[in-house]
Simulated assay, not measured.
Amino acid sequence: MRSKNMNPVAYPELALARKAEKVDVPMQLIERQSTMAGAIALCVQVSGLEDKEVYLSLGIDAGHWSRIMKGDAHFPVNKLCDLMDLCGNEAPLKWLASHRGYGLVMLKTEAQRRIEELESQLNKERERRIWAEDMATGRRGGN
């Protein structure tokens, strides 16, 4: 039973990569939040994801996450877009805009964003196929 004696480095914990389905959070619910921390908590709650899925995916320490959710610590601003992408809603963005007296206008339609995403995936697949063909025929790196 040697495996039980192995250190944690031998079995690193994998980050969970599940993303929530896109949800349109009603503005009425967002405006009930009195703070950005409340909007962030709403964002996570509406997603249906477990806290652990969120903080691991965002690379936030569990203790710091707990303090964020209690309102005793600040959410890292540079991870706000990642949070909204992961949780499938933009409650914090909508809260901030509303709190500051602004409205939001989407610059790209959902269809335009989806087309760009699919084109990117297609280009990656083409590059992978070209590389695989080159490897199969012995043409490595243009040799």
Rank of each mutant, 00 (worst) to 15 (best):
H99A: 13
I40H: 03
Y55A: 03
A17R: 11
H74P: 00
P8Q: 10
S3R: 15
R114I: 10
G103T: 11
C81R: 13
C43E: 05
R113K: 15
E133A: 12
A41V: 07
E119V: 12
R2V: 10
V44Q: 08
A37Y: 00
E125R: 12
K70C: 04
A17D: 09
F75P: 04
A20I: 05
E21H: 07
L29H: 05
L49P: 01
A17K: 11
D51W: 01
G103D: 09
M135K: 15
A111E: 14
H74G: 08
K108R: 14
S120Q: 11
L42V: 07
L14A: 10
E125D: 10
V54R: 04
Q121I: 10
E133W: 06
V25Q: 02
I115Y: 07
G101W: 05
V23N: 01
D51C: 01
L122A: 15
V105Q: 14
A111P: 00
A111H: 08
N5H: 03
A132Y: 04
W131F: 01
G63C: 02
L86V: 06
C43N: 05
G38D: 09
R18Q: 11
M27S: 14
I40G: 03
L56Y: 00
W65Q: 08
D85I: 14
V25I: 08
M69I: 06
S3N: 12
E119D: 13
K4T: 11
T35H: 08
T109S: 15
A62V: 06
R139G: 04
S66N: 13
E50M: 09
Y55S: 04
K79S: 03
I60K: 03
W95Y: 11
Q112H: 03
C81Y: 07
E31D: 12
S57P: 00
E116Q: 12
S57E: 09
V105I: 15
W65S: 07
K108E: 14
I60L: 02
R113S: 10
P26W: 00
G88H: 07
F75K: 05
L107P: 02
A91W: 03
G48E: 05
C87G: 07
G101L: 04
Y102E: 13
S3M: 10
R2E: 12
A15W: 01
E119H: 08
G103F: 01
S34N: 11
E90F: 00
A132I: 06
E127W: 00
P76S: 08
E117Y: 08
A62W: 00
A39F: 05
K22W: 02
